[in-house]
Write a protein that binds this DNA or RNA. Sequence first.
DNA 1: TCGCGGCGATACCCGGCGGGTATCGTAGGC
DNA 2: GCCTACGATACCCGCCGGGTATCGCCGCGA
Lengths: 279, 279
Amino acid sequence: METRELRYFVAVAEELHFGRAARRLGMAQPPLSRAIQQLERRLGATLLERDSHGVTLTGAGTVLLREGRAALDAVDAAEQRTRRAAAGTAGLVLVTKAGATGELLAKLLDAYAAEPGSVPVEILLCRPGEQEGLLRTGRADVALLHRPFDATSGFDTEELGTEGQLLLLPAGHPGSTRPHVLMSEIDDLADLPMPRWPRHDGTYPDGPGPEVLDATQLFQLITLGRIRAILPESVRTQLTGAIVAVPILDAPRVTTVIAWPPQSRSRPLAALIQTATRL
Amino acid sequence: METRELRYFVAVAEELHFGRAARRLGMAQPPLSRAIQQLERRLGATLLERDSHGVTLTGAGTVLLREGRAALDAVDAAEQRTRRAAAGTAGLVLVTKAGATGELLAKLLDAYAAEPGSVPVEILLCRPGEQEGLLRTGRADVALLHRPFDATSGFDTEELGTEGQLLLLPAGHPGSTRPHVLMSEIDDLADLPMPRWPRHDGTYPDGPGPEVLDATQLFQLITLGRIRAILPESVRTQLTGAIVAVPILDAPRVTTVIAWPPQSRSRPLAALIQTATRL
DNA sequence: TCGCGGCGATACCCGGCGGGTATCGTAGGC
DNA sequence: GCCTACGATACCCGCCGGGTATCGCCGCGA
């Protein structure tokens, strides 16, 4: 199977429409149809059920969509990592969510920089959920992730620490005077909605509450009294007077992990990981 | 990058010889040279240093060899899993080392078969070290691996149990009357060599001791009084009277884990894993 | 009921590229 | 100094991936 065929199939499987997929791929529809047919013939499998207006995935098609995406990511990663290796950029690229792990990250970078033989570390800040893709496609060498929010599946990881979570309320909210709360009390205490975060594919789940993309938007909406939120304790350093944080005694603990692609233990990466685990 | 280019590069990088690589790929040498040049131009990277008699990998080339193999495995896996999904083979393929985990495997299969909605499980027995590749290339859905012997990097795993290790000696060997031994005593006790297992690439490390491919060969060589060996306790069930097993009190414990490719939690697979963890 | 619009499939054509053979340039080695 | 082994270059050809035009089918609305 060629990556070209895989790209074509993934496009069609995502659009469920040959015309749109062809436009997305910058080509005409007929060769795309033919390429998919050829792929199906070679695999000996029907991947798509063509109804006269529209297309649906078969079971085999669903498998190939998932596996094909992973394979394309791996090919992409090979290319990116080779490019970076050739550019002689000796540095590491560390990706983390903007706004999270501020203090831990600072400590890690300081400690690593003090190590003999350490290399420059470029920091890549991204939106929640984007880290995984950056790591899988070779744009980054290592990531700080937060279980259970971020998926660590497929990476090698080391735990760096855990923390509790806080209920964030607008200042002046009735619940904001409480010294602490329990998960079961939250719904009664604050009738504000929770924000909705995007899924991995960029769409949002249904429900009440505004859509948010990052921590800045979230803080602003809390400040405006439109939502409540539950976040790890380490956000405390970023809070202003307009937001009150109430510890949640029984919230699931959040584990910060350092994650890297399997089989990619370069010397600088290994040193960074070792430094991190010693913190 | 196309998989064709990757396959070409991997062949050349492994052979370090354009002619041999071309023969292996079933093509002539000139188009191969050209393809590699083109790949280098597109990546903007020198992958190979061409000395007049032979070829060596550059840093970027080393990266692309490692990453490219992983990417090719992923593409291969996508193809295999799609084929199997299309064939309507509802069953799971479980791979494990021939001779290992006999009892645990039997218990697992029995327990899973008793679950409602379980599917047939095909057992694939292979030589040590081969499981990883079968799992990565989609020939198998799930594997039983033994840490620290097998690499689990890149898979999701659950631990199933640990066991100690035994020193295996030919019956009648002076050390075979001992009730137990310590690691530090073994060299003095038995001057027989250890066998040499193949590395992942199929070559053998240097040193004394005969080369072995599987447990059968190993047992035969012990019986013949040519080697000693250290193996997990569960081999006991396979031993004949010609081999004596002495517990090693301080041997590193061997952990049996069930491993599966990340992001591939089909319903039957999830059920099998859950059954395994409950054992 | 018929015409129209939207969809994927088919028919047919063309250019580029992947593959072949023949040959060259160069560097060891006897 | 010539031979040999290796990768690079030159040149050619056929196929295949891409294009345009068109068909067949179905659902829908007048």
